[in-house]
Each structure stands twice: as C-alpha cells, then as structure tokens.
Design a protein around this nucleic acid. Structure first.
Lengths: 141, 141
DNA sequence: TACAAATAAATTTTATACAACTTAATTGCG
DNA sequence: CGCAATTAAGTTGTATAAAATTTATTTGTA
C-alpha cells in the first residue's frame, strides 16, 4: 500500500469535505452578510450574548490573529461591540448588539437549507459527528 | 433543539478537525519545506508524474486561483516544471522534476508519523473515511 | 472562413488561518 | 515593594481559498 497516495489519506477527504461544506454555506450566508467564520462567531454570541476573545478562540479553535480583524468587521457592521474588561484590561469582551440579535432571525433558516444540501441520513450524520469530535478531542497537540 | 447552537452543527467539527489535522502536519512538512496544500499537490505528482492544472484542480477540489501561485512556488523550489501543452496552448502541464522525485523519499515517513498523532482505530478511520467521501460525493453543488 | 461561444489559466480582491513577534496588563515570588 | 514571568490582544508576514474578472486559445457553426 502506497501511503503517499491521495486516496489512502484520511486527511484529504477531511480537508476537501470541510472546504466544500463551507462553500455550500456561502450563498445562504452572503444573503445575511456573513462569511462562514463570521457565522460561527455569531453562533457563539447568539448563545452566550457576551464572550471574551480568549474563550471565543477556545470555542472556535481560532486565535487572535484570526479573530481580531474578524471581530473588527463584525463591529463595523454593528453586530457586536468590543470593550476591554474593567477587571482585567488585557481581556477584550465582545457583546452582541440588538442588530446582532435581530440577525439571528434571518439566520434561523440556514441550518435547514444546508441540511437539504447534505445527503446523509440521521445515523450517518450522528456517526460522522461523533468521529469528528473524537478526532478533535484526542488531537490536542 | 436550537439549530443555531455550535454543538448542534455537523459543519463545525468538520471545519475544526480539518484545520487541526492540517496544523498537526505542519511541523513534519516544514522539515521538508512544504505546506499542506503543497504536500497534497506533490502527492498527485508523485503518483502521476505529469498533470494538467485543470485535472489537478479536479483531484484536489481547488481552482487556478489557488493553484497558479502554489505551482509557481513549487517551480521556484525546483520541484516541478510548468509548460503549456503543445496540442492546446490553453492547458498548462505540470511535470515533476528529479528533485521533486527525491523529495518523495523524505516524505515517506510523514503518513506514519501522522498516524501516531491521530488516535482513531482502524475501524473508526475507515468509517470516517467512508462518510467523508460520501459527503464529498453527494455534495457536487 | 469569420466569429461568437466555450475553455483554461492567470489575475484581482477579499477574507481567512497561523506562526512569530510586539505591546500592554497582571501575577507571583524573592 | 520590585520586577521577572505570564497572559491576552494585536500586529506582521506568508500562504491559502474562492468569487469575479481578464486574457489567450480553441471550437463549433453560420
């Protein structure tokens, strides 16, 4: 078995499928003015309302190099506010705005529309979900 | 069930796991002077020896916007050559060089080293592989 | 045979990712 | 207390990705 053949790689379909799914989201998300990374960031904020950049990075597996410019764009769009923590000025706290809350209504249909594009049945989706989180979990460096 | 919660998404662990795996590759690949995308490109060339940009894009799910600059970098490193097809000048043919072939020897240990980092057993890996290709396959736009 | 349509790369623009480094604030220890 | 170590964002530089456009070439057809 040739270990350097593309078809013998697990990483490659993971990489390709991830990009393909993100690409599938693009037309739905562009209607509400978000990119995929902005969308999952808003997802955290729709749930938590307020979150520090560090915690946000832990949720999303992203660092400030990616999040700082992204959050500035969301701030420009009026979807979030950014302010330093009073207790510890090193921390930057991100809060959702009313406009950000409103955007949630328009995002509600996105998951359903996406499900229509991904032809996995419930069992397959659950299995994939479990395997991906197992992979993520036991890879911590 | 809140469909806009991060934990209820299938796309998110896919996206996060993909980036995490690519990140795991980085230290091994940087030793041989490749990025992950360059590595999978070389994988095609190690197998095919010669390939058009269009076919390469079909194998890798990438377009010329990504491949053109990437292939120029591989050319600068002396790993591939780029030349227009004689039969159809629109096509650009990429050929592996002897230096590119030699690099394969140094890449041989990479898949094994990676397997040591990913703690899935054989059945789980096969299942994941199958589900990812199923997802990729039935997503073609 | 002209020429519109199609095809393949390349280019441009925007938005990530991430490593490495810098800056500012806080902590903890001698 | 004083200051070295730590921590959190931000910045810089490099490399993708992908949409949209442009350029060059080829094809099909009137």
């Amino acid at each position: 078995m040739d270990h350097l053949k593309l078809e013998n790689q697990l990483c490659f379909p993971l990489y390709a499928a991830s990009r393909s799914v993100v690409k599938l989201y693009t037309p739905f998300l562009s209607k509400i003015g978000l990119t995929y990374t902005q969308y999952i960031t808003m997802m955290v904020l729709w749930e938590k309302k307020t979150v520090g950049v560090k915690q946000l990075g832990e949720y999303l597996y992203l660092d400030s190099g990616t999040l700082t410019p992204l959050l500035k764009k969301l701030e420009q769009q009026g979807l979030v506010t950014r302010q330093r923590s009073k207790e510890d000025e090193r921390n930057l706290i991100v809060n959702i705005t009313p406009k950000g809350e409103t955007l949630r209504e328009q995002a509600l249909s996105v998951p359903m529309q996406m499900q229509g594009c991904i032809n996995l049945n419930v069992d397959e989706a659950k299995m994939l979900y479990g395997l991906l989180y197992k992979l993520l979990g036991n890879m911590n460096d």
